[in-house]
Nucleic acid binder design. Structure first.
Lengths: 144, 144
DNA sequence: GCGAATCCGACCAGATCGGTCGGGAATTGT
DNA sequence: ACAATTCCCGACCGATCTGGTCGGATTCGC
């Protein structure tokens, strides 16, 4: 029921990239140090993020990673979905086997409703939102 | 990111109990058959539910399980929290190690906000809501 | 005391988690 | 051409978690 460390690492890396000047690629090593993420582990995470189109990469000297889309067009939902292998459904089991007891449908409905809620929220928050929210002077805009 | 089968089983059992006449205890065997749950597995789930005060049990002939509180006073949040061992925090890792990179706080905030949202929802839905929602003629009351 | 039922600890196979390792392939600088 | 740099990628690995099962101890009603 907790977010996986893998997804958390992926989020960190993406947030760091979103907060950096977008033209200069950042290497795994630097990303690893800034985010406190084991470098070789981060490597495979970035790989799936790239395959999913959320990152672009460049090899050789001066290479590294950049965002594949604008920061405002990447939601944290996309990121965790990619990294955690697509499955992000609270009601997975309940929906799969259609066991029929009194209250079964009510249970399924209640769970999938909550599931839809969290997914909607996850897909609504973008990297842009996060870096904006992080700078204290932007807080006023959010009314926090 | 998916709800555990254990929690799902716990929910099923509780819903079944909530939908049954509350005075007569129901045995593991019957609960197991109605819910399609392996009996011995269900046994340990019911045990922690009882230790948590959500169930009362009676031993010997004519024994079994009954709800420990009124169905309207048991939320599905309580159930999954007990069965899945208490931890139900989306932002667990992010909060634990306070790694400091640009955007760290924004990320923590965003995650814990969503976490709070799903928890609030989980704690708001009661067993009563679920069994009510299950009977089709009650749908109108919900505007579904 | 007998049978029905819960209680409870031990065990277990397989999957997942959180990484590590080592090398290959592409790109750039000299 | 060659070396340095950087990503690419498959294999592996120990620890923990998942989803159970088993066997027996305990308690209750009769």
């Amino acid at each position: 029921m907790t977010i996986s460390r893998k997804a958390e690492y992926g989020l960190r890396a993406m947030v760091i990239l979103a907060a950096s000047p977008p033209e200069k690629p950042m290497q795994i090593q630097e990303l690893s140090e800034l985010g406190g993420i084991p470098a070789k582990f981060l490597e495979q995470i970035l790989l799936v993020l790239r395959r999913g189109g959320l990152l672009r990469s460049k090899r050789g000297v001066g290479g590294g990673y950049q965002l594949g889309k604008a920061a405002r067009e990447i939601s944290i939902g996309e990121i965790v979905a990619l990294v955690d292998g697509g499955l992000c459904a609270l009601a997975a089991h309940a929906a799969a086997d259609d066991q029929e007891f009194t209250g079964a449908r009510g249970l399924r409905d209640a769970l999938s409703e909550i599931d839809a809620l969290v997914n909607a929220r996850l897909n609504a928050v973008t990297l842009d939102d996060i870096v904006l929210r992080d700078s204290p002077d932007a807080m006023l805009a959010f009314g926090i």
